[in-house]
Computed example of a mutant assay.
Amino acid sequence: MAKDLTPQEFDELDTLLQNAPGELEAMDVAMLDGFLCGVLVQPDLLKTADWLAYVFDAEARELPADTDPAWLARTTELIERRHAALRKALAEDQWFDPIVLQLDGTEEPDPDPAFATLPDYSKPLVPFASGFVTALNTFPNGLLSMTDEAIELAMDRVARHLPCSDDDERAAMAELDAEHPLKTLDQAVEDMVLAVVEIDSLTESERYRVEPVRHETPKLGRNDPCHCGSGKKFKACHGAT
């Protein structure tokens, strides 16, 4: 059973990530939560080795040779437990409790002036949304390659909590806000979580699809010459075993 992290372990993980070795730029726990959700809802079933390096560094640079093995083991353990708990919550509950940034008005102003233009209910969700979009961009041949309109709308419902980068994005988000308005942080959290749950449901069949086994060469008939080159018929040679 996937045992989720305790509040103390979330704090521990955040501290461990802040102390990533060398010059690595690790995620914080709020961004990590969004990233893990973005990994989990991909149409391909991704292994830890496919995505873990991006948690430790934005460019997935290798860990320094002198990385403390105890730091790596504990950090990886906590990350994988949160990943498993989110997978279980999505599959069984169709809900999860995301890590939401707690803003108390004492934070340093964000250097990106576009951050100030976000609605108040979006600002606490920026790290989660950023992590989710990072996962989409990390695996561009996955979710981003799909053309399902329902999936695209659900992705926009998460990305709406990030500053827009161009006029097309601003127009799309303005349309989304008009059709699906939000007024409070609680509404925003619920809508974001349900968007992730919806994507997970829409991609589940792709993620667990079983490919049929295809034989590269045609099957030999019993009266065909045996493939071993003996000159005998298949039924009298290897077909008789």
Rank of each mutant, 00 (worst) to 15 (best):
residue 133 V to I: 06
residue 236 A to Q: 13
residue 148 D to F: 03
residue 129 A to C: 06
residue 236 A to W: 03
residue 111 P to W: 03
residue 232 K to C: 02
residue 200 D to F: 15
residue 68 D to V: 05
residue 142 G to K: 10
residue 97 D to V: 12
residue 221 G to E: 05
residue 163 P to L: 07
residue 235 K to D: 08
residue 47 K to D: 11
residue 7 P to G: 07
residue 137 N to W: 00
residue 210 V to N: 02
residue 193 V to W: 01
residue 228 C to N: 08
residue 147 T to V: 06
residue 151 I to T: 06
residue 44 D to T: 12
residue 194 L to Q: 15
residue 176 L to R: 12
residue 202 L to M: 15
residue 88 K to A: 15
residue 64 P to I: 12
residue 202 L to P: 10
residue 163 P to A: 04
residue 191 D to E: 11
residue 74 R to F: 06
residue 41 V to W: 02
residue 88 K to W: 11
residue 160 R to I: 10
residue 186 D to H: 13
residue 46 L to A: 04
residue 147 T to D: 10
residue 66 D to S: 14
residue 49 A to C: 01
residue 4 D to V: 06
residue 138 T to F: 00
residue 105 G to H: 04
residue 31 M to Y: 04
residue 52 L to A: 08
residue 32 L to T: 04
residue 5 L to T: 07
residue 158 V to G: 07
residue 162 L to T: 03
residue 42 Q to K: 01
residue 199 I to G: 05
residue 105 G to C: 08
residue 140 P to S: 03
residue 186 D to G: 09
residue 92 E to S: 15
residue 147 T to E: 11
residue 29 V to I: 14
residue 134 T to M: 06
residue 168 D to R: 11
residue 2 A to N: 11
residue 230 S to I: 04
residue 93 D to L: 09
residue 59 E to T: 14
residue 213 V to C: 01
residue 85 A to G: 14
residue 18 Q to T: 07
residue 69 P to I: 05
residue 129 A to W: 04
residue 22 G to Q: 10
residue 148 D to A: 09
residue 137 N to R: 09
residue 175 E to Y: 02
residue 218 P to I: 12
residue 210 V to L: 13
residue 95 W to V: 03
residue 174 A to V: 00
residue 33 D to N: 15
residue 100 V to C: 03
residue 54 Y to N: 02
residue 106 T to P: 00
residue 41 V to C: 13
residue 160 R to C: 01
residue 97 D to A: 14
residue 12 E to I: 07
residue 122 S to D: 02
residue 89 A to S: 15
residue 134 T to R: 11
residue 44 D to Q: 13
residue 169 E to Q: 14
residue 166 D to K: 04
residue 45 L to D: 13
residue 187 Q to G: 13
residue 228 C to S: 05
residue 237 C to V: 09
residue 12 E to M: 12
